[in-house]
Amino acid sequence: MKIHIKKIILLVLVAIALCALFLSYDLPSNWGYSFERRSYKVLAIIIVSCSVGYASIVFQTLTHNRILTPSIMGFEAVYLLFQTIIVFLYGDKTFTVINDKENFFLSIIFMLGFAFILFKFIFKKEKNNLYLLLLIGLVLGTLFHTITSFLQLIIDPNDFLILQGSIYASFNKINYHLLWYALTVIIICFAVGFRQFKYLDVISLGKEHAINLGINYFKKVRFYLFIIGALVAVSTALVGPIIFLGILVTNLTYEIFKSYKHAILIPACCLICIISIVGAQFLVEHVFSFNIVISIIINFIGGLYFMYLLLKTKKV
């Protein structure tokens, strides 16, 4: 237990140091504006990290599987489809028809609506077969992707650039007014979830053990699925989809913290996520000098890591 606390403190220090480096590196002499922009960027990264770290750990506990990420339930396909439809309908007038704030909230509403229908449907019929839920989410995702690709095919290439801005996650063009809403959602999710982390510890033993130990398993699973839904929706609407980030950070967390306690795993994972994104963003800005979008780097590295995980162990 003590050793875990020490590690957490160490991670906090590293995260603070990296953020400080990110904020102060190569500041222009007229630093006020840059500093403010960078602070917002760091705040955005913290928000996204906390939602991804939290959602991914919980999701992997619920599915008893360490190579899955909540992104695969189809949320991001809903987001992509919605963004594509908007640009398809309004073209270069997109920004005058729908502002960032409306876009943000509408995206969240659509994603949550999708989650709600998916969960309702499955739980009614299947009594909690999570893998089926995943596969159905994935298939729906593929369906939406088909429609999205079709629309993208007929979108004017100039308009496509607008779209490209919103479908690849980036911390550079976030509307900073949205950060506070997102932050509120994350804080609420932590506040309602935190007292229940102990149930997650028990759920990680498996469904039957959890029921045996007096957990209302189905109720808890549903509760956490909705939390996951809210977290993923918020972070996706804020910066766009980052699919493989979750797998990357959770597995790093399990490597560093050999613990089953969620009260440790979840904060640790959020910290590791902050460190990875700030690090990656630093690379994007100062090494690659903006040539590439951050989500693409993360997906690329995360994807390769995922393959490594799959091929490495015989126990999946």
């Binding site: 190579i67 899955l68 695969i72 994935l138 699919i243 493989f244 997906n299 690329f300 995360g302 994807g303």
Partner: peptide, 18 residues
């Protein structure tokens, strides 16, 4: 297995996008 397969497709896609 198909869940993993679809994810595997996602990995390849991320390389393509990169």
């Amino acid at each position: 297995i198909p869940v993993v397969g679809l994810l595997f497709g996602g990995v390849i896609n991320s390389i393509t996008t990169f």
